[in-house]
Amino acid sequence: MLLIQNIRLTRILRNTWKVDLIMIASCTVAYFVRAYLIAHHFEIPSIIPTVLGTAIAFFIGFNNNQAYDRWWEARKVWGALVNDSRSYTRALLNYVDGEDECVRRMIYRHIAFLYALKASLRGTVDEIYIKYLTEDDLKEIENHKNTHNAILNIQSRDLQKLSKANAIDGFRFMEINEMLVRFSDSMGMSERIKNTIFPTTYSYLTKVFIWLFVVTFTLVISQSAGVASIFLGWLIGFVFVSTQINGMSLIDPFESNSAGVPLNQITRTIEINLLQMLGDEEIPDPVKPINDEYVL
């Protein structure tokens, strides 16, 4: 997630330079085609790039709105995980009587759940969660493809044991169990966002329309601007391309990039909060911004 208010032009150019080269080449070809092949035969009506520009604006607007909706939904899900994790830990620490070791184990296991979920969403091999699990837990979850779901199953079983041992009453059991249900809901919503592919036709057609617009705009403007139409065509295309790429960077909110949801920072924040509530002395440092520009 970006932290700065102003984005450097170099960052934008790093994301668009390949498309910029293609647009400059297309504009150059369009200029020479118009100057040497069709200039003496007919004029291209300006209505063509006008209509294409309008269509592109609709497509880019739709794409960016949908991309931001996905990103914001993902951010709300993980914001809820922060709040629910604190409430869950507070409930275990204050509502359970005489089972301190089991409570500590369940809180550690919850931290493992968050790290396992984060690794799954980002498609990375991140085994930080292992240090928060017991040997028995590790043996049980190794047979499960969905590690974080297996951890939740163990949590429910331990909560049931606390209830049978009369360490918590029925009302508090239901309250803590409801939190486990919310963790499962947040897990499912995150997986839905991750596994639902944004329709490729929208982004593909937008790219095609931008290319057609750049070419036709250059053909039209070259009638009055001459060779400068190459630069003007690229400039107008750059506006559309950079706007479209900016929106598409939010399509996969869990990706490990500067525009994604900062899962590393959120998970570490929860870990720090929970360990401090337990009174542990070894507290990890918060995640630091990269180049004071963004956090992952």
Rank of each mutant, 00 (worst) to 15 (best):
M1P: 01
M1F: 02
L2S: 02
I4C: 04
R14M: 06
T16L: 03
L21R: 02
C27M: 04
A35D: 13
Y36T: 10
H40V: 04
P45Q: 08
V51S: 06
G53N: 06
N65H: 07
Q66L: 11
Y68Q: 04
E73Y: 01
V77L: 14
W78F: 15
A80M: 01
E99F: 09
E101Y: 08
R105F: 01
R109D: 00
I111M: 07
A112T: 09
F113H: 13
F113K: 02
A116M: 10
L117V: 01
L117I: 01
L121M: 08
T124K: 15
E127L: 15
K131I: 12
L133F: 04
L133S: 04
L138R: 15
I141D: 05
H144Y: 10
T147Y: 06
N149I: 06
Q155H: 08
Q155R: 00
S156C: 11
D158F: 12
L162Y: 04
L162T: 03
S163Q: 09
K164R: 13
K164T: 06
R172I: 08
F173D: 04
F173V: 06
V181C: 05
V181R: 09
V181H: 06
R182T: 11
F183Q: 09
D185K: 08
S186D: 11
G188K: 09
T196I: 06
T196R: 02
I197H: 07
I197Y: 07
T200L: 14
Y202P: 01
S203K: 15
S203Y: 09
I210T: 10
V215D: 05
T218R: 12
S222G: 12
A225R: 11
A228M: 12
L232Q: 13
W234G: 05
V239E: 01
T243H: 04
I245A: 10
G247R: 03
S249Q: 14
S256I: 13
N273H: 04
L278D: 00
L278W: 05
D280K: 08
V287W: 03
K288H: 05
